[in-house]
Nucleic acid binder design. Structure first.
Lengths: 192, 192, 192, 192
DNA sequence: AATGAATGAGGCTTCATTCAT
DNA sequence: GATGAATGAAGCCTCATTCAT
C-alpha cells in the first residue's frame, strides 16, 4: 500500500534537512540515504546525480512558495492590500517551512543551480517587481526604480526571517504586522 | 625580499575567492594553494587546518567592515545622519569588496565558525540595534522592537547589494540615496 | 505470439554487441537489458549470472563456427583442398559475423570461461592440428611440429581478419585467395 | 637514495600484471595500488585517471618493442635477412616480456587507447609494410598486397606466441627457426 | 619557512543481483 | 515468465593533512 513516491519524498526531505545544516557540498549522499532510510543506490534510481537531487529540492520548494504567493494574491485589491497579502503569504510559508525557506533564500546556489531553476527563481521576483511597478502608476508608491523597491522589501523580509530563525527576535502576529507596516512605509509615496 | 606576510595574504585572498565561488566545503585546500601560488604544505605552516583558515578569512573581513563602520560613525550627529553614515559606510565597503561582502553575508557559516567569530558577527548587529534603540528614545524612530527594525534595515541593504551583484540593478549614487531614504522611511516615526 | 526464445535471442545479441565494444567487465548487465529491450530481471530468468551469460554467448558462436567448418570439410579430398575449404569456411563465417568472430578470437576470456567452453575452444584447434598431421603423413606438408603449423595458420588468418575489420585492407575474393595461397606455401613441403 | 621513478615503475608494473590477468575493466585501481605497494591516492599523483594509466602502460611497452625492432634492423642487408632479423627481435622481446607482449597484442584496447597510442601502434605496422613493399620491388616477395603479407606474418607470429604462452607448443630455437622459415615461404616469391 | 609527494579515509557513483508485484 | 525498484558492496577518484627534504 506504500505509495511509490514515499521513497522519493523521504529522499527529498532528508536532502533538504542536511543541505540546510551542512550545505550542499558539505553533505554526503550516503548520509542523505541513511537519513531517508534507503540504500545509497536508491537515490540514483530517482536522481541522476547529487546535483540533480539538489535541483529537485530547490524546484519543489520554490514552486510551492510561488504557488502559494500567486494563489493568495488579490489581483483586484488595492496595492496596499496586495502588499500585505504577499507579505503574509510569504510569512506563513516561511514560518511553516523553516528549512525550506532557509535553503531557498539563505544558501548560495550559484555553483549547482540549473537553468530551469534560475528561471524559476527570477520569475517570482519579476512578478513582485511588476506588482510594484503597477502600483507606482497610481502614485501610491515612490517614484523610484521598482526593482530596487522590490529587492529592498524582499531583503527586509529575509532579514526579519533570519533574525527569527536565529532567535534574535520572536515573530508573533503583532511584530509581523509592525514589520509589514514599516516596509510599506519604505516603498509608499510620501503622502500615502 | 618578499615579506613573510605576502604568502599569508595570497592564501587568504585565494581562499576568499574560492570560498565565494564554490563554498567552504566545495573548495579544496590544494586548489587554494595553487591559486595562491604556494605549496599545499605552506598553508599548514600558517593555519592549523582548513577550518582555521576559513575562520581567519571571516575574521579579517568582518573586522575590517566593523572597523570602517565604527570609524565613520558620527557619534554626536542626529539619528538621521547616523543612519545615513552607517548605510554609506557599508555601501562603500560592499561595493569595493564584493567577494568579501558576499562571503560574509550570503554564505552559511554555521558549520565551521568558531566562537570568536560568532561573537564578532553579533557585535556589529548589537551596535546597530543600540543606535536604533537610542534614536527611538528621542521619538524619531517608530516605537517598534529596535532589533526588528535593525534586522529589516540590514536585510534591505543586503537585498539591494545582492541585486546589484547579480545584475538586477546597477547601483549609482542616486539609487543608493533612494534606497537609503526608503529604508529610513521604514524605521522613521510617522511624523519624522 | 512472440516465442519465448525471442527474448533470449535479444539478450544474447545485445550481450555480444556490448561485450565486443566494451569487453565483458566493461559491460553492465542493466545496459545489456536495455539494448535487448527487456527488464534487467528478465536476464536472470534465463541466465543465472553475468558469467553464465557470457559463456552462453561464447558457446553459441563457437559451436556455430565449429559446425560450419566441420560441415564444409571435405573429408576425402586431398589436403590442398581441405586446407582451402577450412580457410574459406572460416572466412565466410568471419565476414558474415564480425562481432562474433571478434569476440571469439580477439578477446581475452581467461577470467570467466567455464570448462565446457575451454574444451570447445581446444576442440577446433585439435581438429585442425589433426588435419595437418594427417597431411604431413603424405609428405605434402613440411615435417615440422603440426601444432606449430596450425597455430601459424590460424594466427595468419586472424591477422588478416583483424586488418580487414580495422580497415587496413579490404578483403575481396582475390585477396582472400592470395592469402590462402600464401598460407599454404607456409605449411607446404618444399616440393609441393 | 630511492629514485623518484621507483613508485611510478612499481605502479606501471603492477598495472601491467593485473591488466593482463583480468583486463582493463576487470582491474580495480586500489588493487593496482596494493600490488604496487603504494596508497591508492598515489596513483593519482602520477596518472590523472585509470585511463591515462593504461595508456602509459601501453606506450611504455609499445615504444620499447618498436625501439628494439628498429635498433636491430639491418637496413642494408638483403630482404631475407631483414625478415629474419625482425622476426628474431620480436621473438626475443615476446619471450622476455610475456606479460607486456600479451597485453599489447592480445587485448582489445579500442575502448580506451588515446590517439597518440593509436598512432604508435600503426607506426610499427607501417614500418613493416614498407619493408615488405621494398623487398617486393626486387622480386623476392610475392606480388601481393604488401599490407596483407605483413598482416599475415604478424598474425602468424602472434598465433605462435599465444600457443607458446598457453602451453600448446614449447618454443625453442629450432622451432622458432622452423616458424620463421615457414612464414618466409608464405611471403616469398615462387622462385625465391 | 617552504615544498610537494604521499597517504588513506571518505565521497560520488555504478552495477550485479534480488524480490515483490 | 516478466518487470524494474531496490539493494549495498565495490569502484574511481578527491582531498585534508603529514613529513622528509
Amino acid at each position: 500500500m506504500t505509495a511509490p513516491t514515499d521513497k522519493v519524498d523521504a529522499i527529498l526531505a532528508a536532502a533538504l534537512a542536511l543541505f540546510v545544516e551542512r550545505g550542499y557540498h558539505g553533505t554526503a549522499v550516503p548520509s542523505i540515504a541513511e537519513h531517508a532510510g534507503v540504500a545509497a543506490g536508491t537515490i540514483y534510481h530517482h536522481f541522476a546525480s547529487k546535483e540533480e537531487l539538489v535541483n529537485a529540492v530547490f524546484r519543489r520548494w520554490k514552486e510551492r512558495i510561488a504557488h502559494e504567493v500567486h494563489a493568495g494574491f488579490p489581483a483586484s485589491a488595492p496595492p496596499r492590500e496586495q502588499f500585505r497579502a504577499i507579505w503574509n503569504q510569504m510569512a506563513q510559508f516561511a514560518l511553516a517551512n523553516r528549512d525550506a525557506y532557509t535553503f531557498l533564500e539563505f544558501h548560495h546556489h550559484a555553483s549547482y543551480l540549473d537553468d530551469a531553476n534560475k528561471a524559476l527563481d527570477a520569475g517570482l521576483k519579476q512578478f513582485a517587481a511588476m506588482v510594484v511597478g503597477r502600483a507606482q502608476a497610481s502614485g501610491i508608491i515612490k517614484p523610484v526604480n521598482p526593482v530596487l523597491l522590490m529587492e529592498l522589501t524582499f531583503g527586509a523580509f529575509n532579514g526579519m526571517m533570519r533574525a527569527h530563525y536565529e532567535g534574535r527576535i520572536v515573530l508573533d502576529a503583532a511584530m509581523l504586522a509592525d514589520a509589514e507596516s514599516a516596509c510599506w512605509d519604505a516603498v509608499a509615496g510620501r503622502e500615502a
